[in-house]
């Protein structure tokens, strides 16, 4: 087991986003805050139907989680695609690290970036909102599992993509719609029955709903039941990444 190697790759992935922290931490936190301001003034003091909570408070955990998911995806996908385009990925392929060590290092760095961005977002809001924490454990489980899933998807997307254009296709046409249509901005109770059913097939819905439950104590589904779905999905993502890296999928000729 090459623990030092795994730690070094984790540090590399962490330093990479910390070196450009305006782009990787400040900018996504600011974007989330801008969403919040816009919706705050557009929706006023309206309550969310079926929940005893105002729309502004409802939106905050959802936006925090969406930001986490998008940044976890961005961290791994950008690393792999930059590596492929600049041919630096061969140094990772040549290094004596097993596929699981590689995947672990990438995913822990992705989780760290996601947690840092969400923390910055929430800290900036702290003076302006009274956001309570209903269940810290739920927040942690959903936050970490969600970041693992999206970090893993970023790895797979990066391996699949040949260039920045195909990478942007994955993030804009698959990841962005899935996160936007997962109940960040609305409760699925507000949707027609057909779309409510469709939403239940979107894994991001469970991530955002469970994370929100951790803050507000209310949501569209039972968060304890959803943990199984989310944890299973996270495990499947890790195993898929491990297998694909092991066979050198779209990395080795």
């Amino acid at each position: 087991m090459n623990l030092r190697g795994t730690w070094t790759l984790f540090k590399r992935e962490t330093h990479r986003f910390l070196k450009v922290n305006m782009q990787t931490i400040a900018a996504p936190a600011l974007t989330a805050i801008l969403y919040l301001i816009v919706f705050r003034y557009a929706m006023g003091d309206r309550q969310v139907p079926g929940m005893n909570v105002d729309y502004f408070t409802f939106l905050i955990p959802g936006l925090a989680m969406m930001t986490m998911l998008q940044n976890a995806f961005a961290n791994t996908s950008s690393s792999i695609i930059i590596g492929k385009v600049m041919n630096v990925h061969i140094y990772l392929l040549m290094a004596p690290l097993s596929a699981m060590e590689m995947v672990m290092a990438f995913l822990t760095a992705a989780v760290l970036r996601a947690v840092i961005v969400a923390t910055v977002f929430l800290l900036v809001l702290t003076p302006f909102v009274d956001l309570s924490i209903h269940h810290f454990g739920l927040i942690m489980v959903y936050g970490v599992c969600g970041s693992i899933i999206m970090g893993g998807m970023g790895l797979i997307g990066g391996m699949w993509s040949e260039n920045f254009d195909s990478m942007s296709m994955v993030s804009n046409f698959i990841i962005l719609p899935l996160t936007f249509l997962s109940g960040v901005f609305y409760s699925i109770e507000q949707l027609p029955p057909f779309w409510q059913t469709v939403s239940h097939f979107n894994p991001f819905f469970y991530l955002i709903d469970g994370f929100r439950h951790g803050f507000l104590g209310v949501g569209d589904s039972d968060p304890w039941l959803s943990i199984g779905i989310v944890a299973g999905f996270a495990l499947a993502t890790v195993l898929t990444c491990w297998y694909l890296w092991r066979i050198g999928w779209r990395l080795k000729e």
Binding site: N2, L3, R4, G5, W7, T8, L9, K11, R12, H15, R16, K19, V20, I82, M86, Y91, L92, A95, P96, L97
Partner: peptide
């Protein structure tokens, strides 16, 4: 593109355990 030669060499050492 994110690192200096000294950082790159330290990193390669680490990757090789």
């Amino acid at each position: 593109p994110f690192f200096t030669p000294r950082e790159v060499l330290s990193m390669v050492c680490g990757l090789y355990g």
